[in-house]
Design a protein around this nucleic acid. Structure first.
Lengths: 135, 135
DNA sequence: CCGAATCCCCGCGGATACTG
DNA sequence: CAGTATCCGCGGGGATTCGG
């Protein structure tokens, strides 16, 4: 985890309605965990059912083996996917979403829906900003 | 935006229930936008009402001026906060959440709540993983 | 087929110094 | 007080090579 903010005193906390330090930490942690380049995409793909390594790779299309391996290891470590090895030749490895992984999709997709619903407003704000700044 | 995945053909899309490419893009975009180190923390702080630059700085405690400026500029550009300059001496600048900014907090906090509710399960999974891997 | 190991680039974010 | 400019380290992530 990268984000580390001060352990504040009860005094400082009382200063101005600031109870939710824990909320911020929780938000930052999950964000720093799934906010990387590939995690969400992999999770959404695995929602369709178990999938092999190279199938995932093909469907994503432009991911390196290294990053797919890393992404899957982290997801496995956190209990979001399971990794099943079939000791055949050539080997076969299936990845599948766990219950926890499927539950994670709910708030993540909610964020996505909000984004789709509001992308226009954001885009307008950007054009206003870029226009008035050096137009 | 960093994430750019393949423009897939309708054929590939039909292959296996894969309609939500747009969802993935939206999710990735918002995640890459607010998934940085400080954005969410600043937004949560501003929820308490308008705040001056150095007050934000103090309350966060360990952020550099550069990153606070950058974070606020990006938030302003996307229409999440307003920047109000009082041409006094010394100068005074207030930052305040817009309606859009306040709406953003809803799905973000939902994600945070999910994280708080499930951090134990994640922690257990991590210990299992780390334990069985080189215990 | 699945991955580990290595090398390398680049952008985020911190430290510091300077302006209006 | 608020902000810009510059320098720099670190880690994410890509390309390539090698192993089981």
């Amino acid at each position: 985890m990268t984000v580390s903010h001060h352990d504040e005193t009860g005094q400082a906390a009382a200063d101005r309605g600031w109870q939710h330090a824990g909320d911020c930490r929780a938000i930052s942690e999950v964000l720093s965990r799934i906010g990387d380049k590939w995690t969400v995409l992999v999770v959404e793909l695995l929602d369709g059912g178990p999938m092999r390594f190279n199938e995932l790779r093909r469907r994503i299309g432009n991911i390196s083996q290294k990053m797919l391996t890393t992404t899957l290891r982290n997801l496995e470590r956190d209990g979001f996917v399971t990794r099943t090895v079939f000791p055949t030749i050539p080997p076969r490895v299936d990845y599948e979403l766990t219950g926890l992984g499927r539950e994670l999709r709910v708030p993540v997709k909610a964020l996505g829906h909000w984004a789709r619903a509001n992308i226009d407003r954001i885009q307008e704000a950007r054009e206003r900003f870029d226009g008035t700044r050096q137009g």
